[in-house]
Amino acid sequence: MLAKLRAQLATADARIRPAGYPVASALAELLPDHGLHPGAAYSLGSAGALLLALLAEPSAEGHWCGVVGMPEFGTEAAQLAGVNLDRLVLVPEPSDQWLGVVAALSEVLPVLAVRPPGRVREADAARLASRLRDRGSVLLVHGDWPRAEARLELADPHWAGLGAGFGHLGAREVLVRGFSRRLAGERVARLLLPDGAGRLAVARPVVEEPIGLEAVG
């Protein structure tokens, strides 16, 4: 009986709220629900290519994105990653009003990236969380966040293309680790973040193909 009511509630809820914001399939594996859940906060270990990869899919779908408190956000790299700059709003220096700014922006921007200037108090986070749930926005936090839905971190980066005095930076092969209180253990994926064109790609394991010798002439 209870299960039936829960299912009914879930379908009613799903009708009101969007199912979630899309995420590149390589990253979706690491997240609970395989996407960005409306009203949830995600904590990121780095604000660079990982954040751009998370913004790219919702932006390509036509959602507005906001970036708060990151004065050195590289918008050209964002464009390469697939973020639509026409629907990207930057608030580089919100200073001590960042909570108010994020709360206001969450009314209209469905995906918000933020770097809090210091430690976030539990009470502030809870207040913002209820606001986010109400509006159905997603918060991507660079740094720690109390009761984040999931946390993504980068580890073991390897850059290709650069030698000792020659070449230029190409793709970065990196291990992305996802933790979530809703998933047991950690999930990992080896990705190219960014690949040679600045986007996200799955790292293909290098398979040594035997060189077939062929008699000629």
């Binding site: 507005w64 918008t75 050209e76 464009q79 700059l85 026409d86 990207l88 709003v89 930057l90 608030v91 580089p92 220096e93 919100p94 009003q97 108010g100 700014v101 206001a104 922006l105 009314e107 209209v108 921007l109």
Partner: peptide, 27 residues
């Protein structure tokens, strides 16, 4: 549509932070 709502909210944030507090970017 939604874009006008975006404008209203961004204008409100501008009145909190000053006109240069809310930026858009182009290359």
């Amino acid at each position: 549509g939604p874009d006008e709502r975006v404008h209203h909210v961004l204008t409100r944030v501008q009145s909190m932070l000053g006109p240069d507090g809310v930026l858009t970017s182009r290359i």
